[in-house]
Simulated scan of single mutants.
Amino acid sequence: MPEQAGETTLDTFDGLIDWSRLNDWMTTKTLPGSGPATGVRKLSGGLQNAIFLIERGSDRMVLRRPSRNGKPKGNETMLREARILTALEGSTVPHPQLYAACDDESIIGAAFYLMAPLEGIAKSGALEGDYATDPTWRRAMGEELVTAAVAMASLDYEAAGLGDLGKPDNWHARQVERWRSQLEGYATAMPAYNPNDLPHFAEIGRWLSDNIPTDQRIGIVHGDFQFPNVMFSLKAPKISGVLDWELASLGDPLLDLGWVLSSWWEEGDPEGKGPMVQPWDGFLSRADLIDLYGALSGRDMACIPWYFALACYKLSCLLEGTTAAWKAGKVPDKVGESVHAYASWLTAKARQVIAY
């Protein structure tokens, strides 16, 4: 049932927000607006998070908390994201401003944080505004993605207090075993799944192990750097902010560029996947993205096939978790078939990459 928030009755979204406790907590923090919340709207945000746009008079904030059926460590993830946003303050990485975080689960039943709302769109599918009509705006989207990736790569993670965000030692050499063992683990948990049903995976893993780059760097890796996790302004062709830092860790930042390349589309790609956003004309080529990253970062880009292939290898493994759940009868056929088809496309693309 909705609860009373001041003079306005607001939806609790079946208990995801306790307005009485949240309003009391907000009065103890330096936040936009004053008094109790006056409005709320649930935003789209995937399966793991529940995201709300909260109004306090004329001011607005975004509240992020774990969803009701999210991962077991959802509270830790929320606080980790908040910590990363705090560390990004003052950097050149476009990101939403963090207002406050709460680790007291008694307030709304989970850890949460409040951040500034961002203007623009973060999506796949049909583009909006000038991105839909002006090819120069679409070209700028690729340039902005690369610029943001370089900004993330240049962040001094030690100075930002993020030196314990991951395990950087021997990171490159550990990648193949890390994801191969996860793929095989699906079969242990769900015997109906056969890892050999993912084509070319073992072949790609052998190539990655045999071609580990000598130019190795460690920095912040976003972990899922692609269109749905980046807000593009509708007022100008630029990024308003990078979202969804829950998978961020330490690793070689070139993996973020590899992730972008894996989400891209060009003539000659394997059959079975189209552009992530439409229309696609005007976008930079993969070669243009790579050249721009090298020009902005000063890094030798000769090793980029390794990171491109690794991105495909890793993402295909992650997607196969859904395939395994489908084989176990836990996911609808339409979803399982679609996800497995995309994972298979990724390994087919990686095979193309390592063939050159």
Rank of each mutant, 00 (worst) to 15 (best):
2 P>I: 05
3 E>P: 05
3 E>Q: 15
7 E>D: 15
9 T>H: 10
14 D>F: 10
14 D>L: 11
14 D>I: 07
18 D>V: 00
23 N>M: 03
23 N>R: 03
23 N>D: 13
33 G>L: 04
34 S>V: 11
34 S>P: 05
35 G>N: 09
36 P>A: 05
39 G>N: 15
46 G>E: 12
55 E>A: 15
56 R>Y: 11
60 R>F: 12
60 R>T: 12
61 M>H: 05
61 M>P: 02
63 L>M: 13
63 L>F: 04
63 L>D: 00
64 R>V: 01
65 R>H: 07
68 R>E: 12
68 R>P: 03
69 N>Q: 14
69 N>H: 15
73 K>M: 13
75 N>Q: 07
77 T>N: 11
80 R>D: 05
87 A>S: 06
89 E>I: 00
92 T>P: 00
101 A>P: 03
102 C>T: 02
104 D>A: 15
105 E>Y: 06
106 S>Y: 05
108 I>K: 02
108 I>P: 02
115 M>P: 00
119 E>Q: 13
123 K>A: 13
127 L>T: 00
127 L>N: 00
128 E>R: 15
128 E>V: 12
130 D>N: 09
131 Y>A: 02
132 A>H: 03
135 P>F: 08
138 R>G: 02
141 M>E: 02
149 A>S: 10
151 A>P: 06
153 A>Q: 08
153 A>I: 07
155 L>F: 01
163 G>K: 13
164 D>N: 14
165 L>Y: 13
166 G>S: 14
168 P>N: 09
168 P>L: 10
169 D>E: 15
173 A>P: 04
176 V>F: 04
177 E>T: 14
179 W>E: 03
195 P>E: 06
202 A>C: 05
207 W>P: 02
212 I>Y: 05
212 I>G: 03
213 P>R: 08
216 Q>Y: 02
216 Q>G: 06
220 I>A: 06
221 V>R: 09
229 N>C: 07
233 S>H: 01
234 L>G: 01
234 L>Y: 04
234 L>W: 04
239 I>K: 01
242 V>T: 05
249 S>R: 15
250 L>P: 12
255 L>A: 15
263 S>I: 03
263 S>L: 11
270 P>D: 10
276 M>H: 08
278 Q>A: 07
283 F>W: 01
298 G>W: 10
301 M>L: 13
305 P>V: 09
322 T>Y: 11
324 A>F: 06
327 K>W: 11
328 A>G: 13
333 D>P: 06
333 D>L: 07
334 K>L: 12
335 V>G: 11
339 V>A: 02
340 H>L: 09
341 A>T: 04
341 A>Q: 09
346 L>A: 12
353 V>S: 06
